[in-house]
Nucleic acid binder design. Structure first.
Lengths: 132, 132
DNA sequence: TCGTCTATTAGACGCTATCTAACTCTAGAG
DNA sequence: CTCTAGAGTTAGATAGCGTCTAATAGACGA
């Protein structure tokens, strides 16, 4: 889908900078950090400022175009997959891989006493044995 | 168990500072950040330095007295429970609560193709409906 | 006691993210 | 079309967290 349309559908005014950020971050599977997004966007639009990229990413998260995922201290990474899925983190490379929701069975989360669980995911650590 | 003994059993030379850090962090269920540990320890030992607290926490993690979790932005959180368990994060207060391993069923993680999963946990977000 | 290795310290540093104040742009009213 | 208010962007300052450095202090065996 067109990025401009996608922004409008989520109630976001599509400025040039927002489209530039969106074109990069909404089509990657790399789980980039905010600064990686900043560097990537600046390659095409050298006048874009750090503040705008951070503002835009936070806006996208607020408007549910992106999800933020906390990987390491001081490092939030962004994920354009807004449907539920799990994450696997390679302990050697730090690489983050999406794991399909159905690949793992999780039961009884909803029945937890004393908690109203709105969302959850399984976070796995280990080593990748082969590419997909 | 005595903190001094616990340190020795994990191959850690028990200095005064390490015992002070250990007495606080090994007996709390609060999931404190490194800086919270620093503030708490400094209340009792005002001469202790930030670097020592950070060094000590990293040493404890390395020696498996603690586990470090990155669950909230910009915050490593330390957890003296070294047995497997899950985590629930209250989206209003940021409070982190341990969830017993058996409270949730997770199946098929070991069978994931292409991944050697060494450890995993379920991270839940939502609202707490009552105290335990 | 001496010497060496370990531990601690204050402060500097680096990185990430947010804030500030000035500016530029845009959309809508008239 | 012009004007204006609000939205968006900007560079740079600032804040928070964690690590590093160089010097000092302490512990332990010979």
């Amino acid at each position: 889908m067109d990025v401009v349309t996608e922004l409008r559908e989520h109630g976001i005014q599509p400025s040039a900078q927002r489209v530039a950020v969106g074109e990069y971050v909404l089509s990657t599977t790399d789980h980039p950090s905010a600064d990686q997004v900043f560097q990537a966007v600046r390659r095409r639009f050298p006048m874009v400022s750090r503040a705008t990229v951070y503002n835009t990413l936070n806006l996208f998260v607020e408007k549910k175009l992106l999800r933020a995922f906390v990987l390491a201290p001081g490092r939030i990474v962004f994920d354009p997959k807004t449907d539920s899925h799990h994450h696997f983190i390679d302990e050697r490379t730090g690489e983050i891989v999406d794991v399909p929701w159905d690949a793992v069975d999780v039961k009884r989360v909803e029945a937890l006493r004393g908690f109203d669980v709105r969302e959850y995911q399984v976070v796995m650590h280990g080593r990748r044995t082969r590419r997909h």
